[in-house]
Design a protein around this nucleic acid. Sequence first.
DNA 1: TCACATTGTGAACAACACTTCACAACCGGG
DNA 2: CCCGGTTGTGAAGTGTTGTTCACAATGTGA
Lengths: 218, 218
Amino acid sequence: MITETILVVDDDQDLRESVVEILEDAGYAVASCATAEDALQAMQETTPRLALVDNMMPGMGGMALLPLLKRDYPGTKIIMITAFSTVDNAVAAMRSGADDYLSKPFRRDDLLVAVRRALEVLKFESRQAEPCMDEALACLSNPIRRQILVALAESGEMRFMDITRTLGIRDHTKVNFHLKNLKSCSLISQNREKNYRLTPQGEKIIECLHLLAKRISS
Amino acid sequence: MITETILVVDDDQDLRESVVEILEDAGYAVASCATAEDALQAMQETTPRLALVDNMMPGMGGMALLPLLKRDYPGTKIIMITAFSTVDNAVAAMRSGADDYLSKPFRRDDLLVAVRRALEVLKFESRQAEPCMDEALACLSNPIRRQILVALAESGEMRFMDITRTLGIRDHTKVNFHLKNLKSCSLISQNREKNYRLTPQGEKIIECLHLLAKRISS
DNA sequence: TCACATTGTGAACAACACTTCACAACCGGG
DNA sequence: CCCGGTTGTGAAGTGTTGTTCACAATGTGA
């Protein structure tokens, strides 16, 4: 079993060591480095699931590091640390993929609260919901069903024959068959007016399809 | 074709009307309402892909509305609007799922920039790369094959009987069958020592499986 | 060398996914 | 009212996927 560590990235040696100490006192395993470049190296070696990153660093700054980390390690949570924080800066950081944001100076407890919260989220996320994915993935295995989902995602709401014609399928009962499948895994639903639309679950699946497509093609 | 609209949620009638006007002048179709409760209703009816939500409203506030919207309409982008903005508030909003954050008072152009940026992201996300995913998704449709991929992701490299025993399958030829499938979609490969391992493609798929699990369970 | 685990193939079969067809309930306009 | 489009069901057939079994090549330690 690989020990779970937290990575601390900060060029200010005093602050870095103090952060490391706080975390180690709290019982966490910690790795640290002083530059964004070293951080990338460290990520490759230890792949921590939580990283604390300083915003202002010589060389590549934290804001530049953020998107790199999020792209290559989408599962890793990142807490941004900043002096001179502004609303705009915080928003920019969060938009770039930071999972939390700490303004310097912060108290010991601010740090620990943020870390614990991030780890809680990780714990929650790592509890997988495999079972409910089974039916969903099985549904996705058929191209016609995928096309239906995509069409619904684009149009928001469609009637039966809309879908049939959009896909260019002559036999409407065939479409019906797949619609029934999608309904039974509750990826789509039908309202009183008989309009089909994605369920929240269905939308999540579509989002993931997009992610998958993006990732595979890149 | 349903017209794409932007939803504006703000209790302050003056501000709401001015925002609506700015957006309409810029050529967008706009719907608006004054309370979070009405917003939920409006979402059900029109399902806009972009919503501007005021933070402070009588009744349910914007911060309470946010997670509801994100849960039920994960595809919809949300821009939070706030008077008295602080870093903490901005961070909290972004953490709750806001995609952007505007401090009052803002200029016409600030608003339009944020809106355009959100719409750009939406446009990008809706562009798909379906074709190469077909075989991969078909492979994922079988639980045994998924288990094999997961096992390989965890162990890095395994031999035939390792896999068979790890999955607790008595008939080794069954495993062989699925391995052959996985090989033929090049999600796994086999080296001279007959060890099986994930291909780069296979690793990407596993990442996406994790993402999917995360998303579905949350 | 023999015994035994590993790794694999191909055929026969079972189970399931998908398609097609015949038919029917319903609604709206002419 | 009748006609044609919409939305649906169920049964029968077809084809694909998945399982099982009998068997074989290879390697490996006693």
